[in-house]
Simulated scan of single mutants.
Amino acid sequence: MTKKPKPSEDRVEASPDHFSDKPLTEKIGNNLKQLYDDVVNEEIPDDFLSLLAKADK
């Protein structure tokens, strides 16, 4: 009889995201920080700036 690996062990080894030793929470935190930085550094569209100028009047 052949011993089958546990399903959880099989998934971890075959996981495409198993490229670093960082804990998952650290990966998520780093990705969220990067996303936030990207959004903060985006230019404000001219249409939105025009709308804000109209709202100030």
Rank of each mutant, 00 (worst) to 15 (best):
E43L: 06
S15D: 15
D17T: 05
S20D: 15
I44Q: 04
E9K: 11
K22G: 02
D37G: 13
T2D: 12
A53G: 09
N41L: 03
E13D: 11
E13I: 08
K57S: 13
K33V: 10
L51S: 06
F48N: 03
L35Y: 12
D17F: 13
S15C: 14
S50K: 05
K33M: 09
M1C: 14
D56I: 05
K3T: 00
K27H: 06
P7W: 01
N31E: 15
P7K: 00
V40Q: 05
I44Y: 02
K54Q: 04
A53Q: 10
K6I: 00
E42R: 14
L35A: 13
T25L: 13
D47G: 15
P16I: 00
L51W: 10
H18Q: 14
N30T: 11
E43Q: 05
N30H: 11
K33T: 09
E43C: 02
P5V: 05
Q34C: 01
D17Q: 07
S20G: 14
D10Y: 10
L49F: 07
Y36C: 14
L32C: 07
K4C: 01
E13S: 10
A53P: 01
G29Q: 08
D10M: 09
D47N: 13
K54S: 02
V39C: 08
H18D: 07
D17N: 14
N31A: 15
D17V: 03
L35K: 11
K57I: 09
E26P: 00
K54A: 05
Q34V: 03
T2N: 12
D46C: 01
A14N: 13
E26C: 01
S50D: 07
K3L: 09
H18F: 14
E26M: 09
K27R: 15
N30Y: 07
A55R: 06
L51C: 05
P5I: 02
N41E: 07
T25P: 00
K54R: 02
M1D: 11
